[in-house]
Amino acid sequence: MLDVRNIVKIFNHGTVNEKTALRGVSLHLSPGEFVSVIGGNGAGKSTLLSAVAGVYGVDSGSITIDGRDVTRLPEYKRANLIGRVFQDPMMGTAASMGIEENLAIAKRRGQRRTLKWGVTPHEREEYRELLATLDLGLENRLTSKVGLLSGGQRQALTLLMATLKSPKLLLLDEHTAALDPKTAARVLELSEQIVARNNLTTMMVTHNMRDAIAHGDRLIMLYDGKIIIDIAGEEKKKLTTKDLLDMFEERSGSGDADGNLLL
């Protein structure tokens, strides 16, 4: 579904601030695969996700989604294939617009925006039912401004918006990092449900090693712009935090796993 081939991303090329964020990352995701991506600060996990989403271009390598080469496609065109949830709950929704208006914009992802009504009565019913599945009481607040919602509610709504038009690829960029532990757990649980229900190919970046181990059927660890650990299947199911730390120390050559990785 996703085929990333040897991508390199260098920020501030040719200046004193030059930083190579990705040093030849290759990654293949099969349809329906749920991979969690971990790594310390500056390891390149967010850069990888942003490069796939098209926030910026890559310096070399190629990105193919569902058989389509998107390497040179701008962000808004790739959005036809990709659903995204961001770390910042403010990023995924338009605060001064209503819940139904936000959903309606997401519902038309990949379509031309015409002069037809922005929200039709028919889809309103659909949204009510979908919001009810979140179990956050949003189904009766369709016209409420999204700015009035809590961070957790906004992330849940963004998740719904990202998956409303079944995307070929779902990108979750530390989407629970800004939430309190209880809300974070709830949003993660919702993510898992929605991914399973729609059988979505998913990449989830997280800071939290336990989340990465508990969720998804594959785990990737980035270090210094490279993939150093890639575990799937039975091995992934049996994985413990200790295994992961040992593996990290062995492969990165760094004795300070705790300092490099947040638990």
Binding site: A53, E75, A79, F86, M97, R108, R113, T114
Partner: peptide
Amino acid sequence: TELGSAIRATGNNPNMVRAQGI
């Protein structure tokens, strides 16, 4: 309309708008 909503959302949060393919 769909188009007008997209313009309003752009003033509000261009990140979200791009992520929704506009």
